[in-house]
Design a protein around this nucleic acid. Sequence first.
DNA 1: AACTTTTTCTATAAATCTATAGAATATATT
DNA 2: AATATATTCTATAGATTTATAGAAAAAGTT
Lengths: 200, 200
Amino acid sequence: MAEKKSEKKSKYDQRYKAAVDAAAAVFAEKSYHGCGTTDIAHKLNIKQGSLYYYFKSKEAALEAVCLMGITEQANFLAELISKELSFAENIKAITQFSLKSLRENGDYIVVFNNDRKSIPLERRGKVREQSHNYHLMLMDIFRTGQEKGEIKAELDILISVRAYTGLLSSASKWYHSEPTIDLAAVLNQFSEMFLNGAIK
Amino acid sequence: MAEKKSEKKSKYDQRYKAAVDAAAAVFAEKSYHGCGTTDIAHKLNIKQGSLYYYFKSKEAALEAVCLMGITEQANFLAELISKELSFAENIKAITQFSLKSLRENGDYIVVFNNDRKSIPLERRGKVREQSHNYHLMLMDIFRTGQEKGEIKAELDILISVRAYTGLLSSASKWYHSEPTIDLAAVLNQFSEMFLNGAIK
DNA sequence: AACTTTTTCTATAAATCTATAGAATATATT
DNA sequence: AATATATTCTATAGATTTATAGAAAAAGTT
């Protein structure tokens, strides 16, 4: 009976996850305001009205997608920090994880990057918290790197963090449409360029 | 009479420019699909229906904004190339011009970056042409830089260009909300990081 | 098989949004 | 001043969208 209950629950959960996936895919392709709930329902093979069995509102779907996108990244950062690696190793690890996430959960990251501002203020709390947290952890990694003398002393840490996150998030714009480009090549070059620069 | 005619024409042109500015501001703030024509009209201090005296459609307004955003950048690149500077000088000049444009015409660039995909296919021609052109010119600058031995030989040019444009376009996400940060500081650090890297 | 719960469907209310047409007002010209 | 032109307004048609309510169907339970 406990087994049956958990099976039942997991059936709903599976379907709920499929709904969030569908929302992520549609939001990523057309943007939150650029799509209708019909599009999401169609991708799930159900009718528009049925979607509200899983989401209280379209906004709730957006929140779920964004939260999942940033939470995965934040959790990874927290784990990474506990390992106390060098700055260069941290950058390589973060770049690798980000690009792998882009390939496996690209829609979530794209939606977080592009549409998180469309979450209404009263619902934005959790997403803001996670992304603020992510930012703080990155700042921490950079600050530590500079204190240890790994990062050039003259660099402003905030600008550096912004530049690095910008580099990563920009990858989400083209990575998906260029399957030719090899993941490892991008990874190596991003890390190399960011750490050591483009010129000799 | 010729003077009066041109004055008249320029009155319409002034107002048309104000309309495009208003559209850019609203699109940048709420995104193309996230706003209504009412928002644009309100910013212009006219009623919603009056907007159609200046734009045939909302989509036409979007096209005008995007085209202006990318054209300015493309024109600058074309001029720059004719000067035949070194790679490092080119990067500094492009970074400087981009950040200056961001400050002065930020809305146009934000809209081009975020919403150009919302231009319907049949209207996208001119914008695509200009942005393809921009990409080709950047590729050219990087290729030349590598041939002259300024860029590390092992770097893939396409990935480098993507990384650099990503760095620039990401600035449009935060520069606006952080008036504390000095333009010159960002400029120097962006160029420095991209050229020489973050670590010692 | 009868019953309960879960999931999906149909139909629709209510709000919103783009675009148009024709009236009204302002501005320029003769 | 009378007339023409340019600009804005009002009102609205028509399409679309989100969300809800209650019926129907599917799945699970006893």
